[in-house]
Design a protein around this nucleic acid. Sequence first.
DNA 1: AAATAAAGTAAAGCATACTTTACTTTCGAA
DNA 2: TTCGAAAGTAAAGTATGCTTTACTTTATTT
Lengths: 67, 67
Amino acid sequence: MQNRIQEMRKAMRVTQNELADAVNVSRQTIISLENGRYNASLVLAHKIAKYFGVAIEELFVFDEEEE
Amino acid sequence: MQNRIQEMRKAMRVTQNELADAVNVSRQTIISLENGRYNASLVLAHKIAKYFGVAIEELFVFDEEEE
DNA sequence: AAATAAAGTAAAGCATACTTTACTTTCGAA
DNA sequence: TTCGAAAGTAAAGTATGCTTTACTTTATTT
């Protein structure tokens, strides 16, 4: 699964810190998500999508081969 | 967070077993999700939503007060 | 009413999301 | 070119999603 968090964050000119605060997680979590170290939980995915004003499916790219 | 898994599953006349197999998790996982014991991961949420042919946001009800 | 399928509970164990702390690297401005 | 902000790495610890096994309860069908 890929995501467009960094892309959208930069488009909105927001720092990792600001995003982390806005959705109530640590900056580490944002870094790890952006760098593909793990996947967001459903709740976090929803919060970030909402923050960017998009649907979860627009923010996360579910490559259909994945299991 | 609430979800409409049981509701949609019954509407489609599918058993917990069939759904579990279709999205590749154990039956326990479906039971626990339906009974609100925990939240689905993003990947699982996507698979179930896809199985039912709806968007994640239609299947999961994110009550905005939650944290 | 008896048999079978479907749904549920319980609990131990593993995998992964997320936190915290501390330190390093990159980058844009003064 | 240096200084500070932003981004990144590493690693140990906690929380939670998911599995597995085994047994119980509720529905449905015959």
